[in-house]
């Protein structure tokens, strides 16, 4: 009797279970979260592809620039019109006190190389370098003139030395020589 009731109850439970709803509408739309999750990897893949493409473009661009620079080195010398010719006065420490022959020789070599190197540079750069050297040399002339009147002035002496140093730096930069530390034991 109990078994029969148990079976009946079992059947009732199974019948009732089959009536339970199988579809439930979520209280909130879950698609937005799903969509963002499945779109992210796609974007990441695209971004990765873009990064690869960008690096290739960068590599080609850098190679092209390097090639052009190397080619420019071998380009024929171009004449730049309207560039002032540099005035080279003998280096002296005050009027009537020319600097030592070693310094003059080094300066003369740099001057020659400066002209050669300047001709390889683009026109505007040539003009800038020449203007800088002109300014420095004009300052040296003025300081020398002042030193002629005040030969004991330590300030003018230091100023003159730093001006010559500046002139050498410009010359060496153009020439590519690292002679910034060139000793000045002749003055």
């Amino acid at each position: 009797m109990t078994n029969k009731r148990d079976h009946e109850l079992d059947d009732e439970i199974m019948a009732a279970a089959s009536q339970l709803s199988i579809g439930v509408v979520p209280e909130r739309d879950l698609w937005a979260g799903i969509e963002s999750a499945i779109e992210k990897p796609r974007q990441a893949r695209w971004q990765g592809a873009f990064a690869q493409a960008a690096s290739i473009v960068l590599l080609i661009g850098a190679s092209a620039v390097t090639y052009m620079m190397l080619e420019a080195k071998n380009m024929p010398v171009t004449e730049v019109v309207g560039v002032p010719v540099l005035r080279v006065a003998p280096a002296s420490f005050g009027v009537g006190n020319p600097l030592g022959p070693e310094y003059e020789d080094a300066r003369a070599v740099l001057e020659v190389r400066l002209e050669q190197e300047l001709e390889r540079l683009p026109g505007p750069t040539q003009v800038d370098v020449r203007k800088n050297l002109e300014n420095i040399r004009a300052a040296i002339d003025e300081i020398n003139a002042a030193l002629a009147e005040e030969p004991e002035s330590m300030m003018l002496q230091k100023l003159l030395m730093s001006s010559y140093q500046r002139e050498l730096e410009v010359l060496s930069k153009v020439d590519g020589f690292a002679i910034r530390g060139m000793p000045r034991d002749d003055i």
Binding site: I22, G23, V24, V25, P26, R28, L30, I34, A37, I38
Partner: peptide, 30 residues
């Protein structure tokens, strides 16, 4: 969605868990 969410809800007996399971299931399906 309704059947998948319903299944998740019946199995977990937890609304929040069911929502997470449903989303995860569809993401995995994708």
């Amino acid at each position: 969605i309704e059947r998948v969410y319903g299944l998740c809800l019946r199995m977990t007996a937890n609304k929040s868990e069911a929502e997470d399971c449903t989303q995860e299931a569809f993401i995995q399906a994708w």
